[in-house]
Design a protein around this nucleic acid. Structure first.
Lengths: 230, 230
DNA sequence: CGGTGTGAAAGTTTTCACAGCG
DNA sequence: CGCTGTGAAAACTTTCACACCG
């Protein structure tokens, strides 16, 4: 109905899109949603780039991987671009996610608002500890691991999160794969071995901090007026 | 004393090292520590690469940014390489970290073992909520925000973590910068505006999941034998 | 005008391939 | 031998710069 520039479902993603482009698309979307909530109607590539620390050309090139969304002389209409980027990322549909591990971190993530923001929801939680099974946290009941394949299949779940201790993470991954999950977010500090059709994204807090300790330690030649002692 | 190939403190990091190289160094280190714990003495670039899904050449090139650590015909000695990589990343020294926000996620991270693994520790937690100040969680007392600059300075703290709601994240970042922190891990789903001498690493759970929903949705041409219906 | 979309150029990262070493 | 270290080539990503559009 609306005359957005690229037809719905068209998505001319001929060649494969670089991963780094997809991660920037997520950042564009997050920023656009904030701007829209603040009442902004349109935005140019240079405004969007400036907000995120990228060049205008980069914003346009990135969007160009997926279609034509802009209006010369005007920019992009926030509502259209948001819709298009959610189509690209797949988040106009709901994504139920299973979570393996109901420890500290798992419980905290259960309570995290901000999933919902992009149509993700934690559909079920599983834990190997019989003492935890049957308990309810944040309104979600903890299931035994045996129930995983049944729930994944019956509810058509495609994504999983691993929030178990490092020693159990590979085992958890194997269970998710066997149940038919196609993508995994891994919070355990280990490299998972997975079949090539399963995607993985890893978050390791110690590694994030290491990136900073490196950057801060090697911050020798930067800025101006760096007199060691005074 | 030991004849490691590159002298301690030498680190010939003339040109600036690409960020992606530093993040792989962290992965190499994590894997090496696992191998060492399992009793392995030496490792070749191709073994290490295979374990992580990289090529042997990439492992060698990455290490080459920092010096010469290997023995032709043998490989790398795990203990030496671990020590060297920790020197590179700066994690042979302790890194006390301040945390802003004592909500669900903050409390979970406080209890997370695995920081310590790389010499990071949460030195103090701060929260704006007077009801939380004074409480003790996971053995750490929650301080009022007013105490931040004093504690950062007296304890020589250089890194901070933001675990507050999105609406408060920029404000929290400004406080950290004013207190003198040089690097920030941001768990709030917003882009922070920071002076150029402050480094930031961001973790946004919704964005991690979006990377997967994109990958899974666009998993059209992969593997072999992908007959749509049969 | 002010802004998009896009080839072509520049810059960066990865892979190749091989000399050299114990 | 088996493996490192490293120039040179290939592949990929970013920036430039400009035709075109409303």
């Amino acid at each position: 109905m609306t005359d957005s520039r690229t037809q719905p479902g068209e998505t001319p993603s001929d060649a494969s899109v670089p991963k780094v482009v997809v991660s920037r698309i997520s950042l564009y979307l997050r920023e656009l949603q904030r701007l829209q909530a603040a009442g902004q109607q349109t935005i140019s590539s240079s405004q969007l780039g400036t907000l995120l620390g990228f060049s205008d050309a980069q914003v346009r090139k990135d969007l160009g991987f997926f279609g034509q969304f802009g209006y010369p002389g005007v920019g992009y209409r926030c509502d259209e671009l948001i819709r298009a980027m959610r189509d690209i990322l797949g988040t106009n549909q709901p994504w139920p996610v299973v979570m393996l591990g109901a420890g500290n971190l798992g419980q905290a993530l259960l309570g995290y608002r901000g999933f919902g923001r992009q149509n993700f929801s934690i559909a079920a939680v599983f834990d190997a500890d019989p003492a935890k099974v049957g308990q309810t946290i944040q309104g979600v009941r903890i299931h035994p691991l045996d129930d995983l394949p049944g729930i994944v299949r019956s509810r058509g779940i495609r994504l999983g999160m691993i929030v178990v201790p490092a020693e159990r993470a590979q085992e958890a991954a194997d269970l998710l794969v066997a149940a038919g999950v196609e993508g995994i977010v891994n919070f355990a500090p280990v490299t998972l071995t997975l079949p090539p059709h399963v995607d993985v994204v890893s978050v390791d807090l110690a590694i994030e901090l290491e990136q900073l300790s490196f950057a801060v330690t090697n911050k020798l030649a930067r800025s101006l007026g760096d007199a060691t002692a005074s």
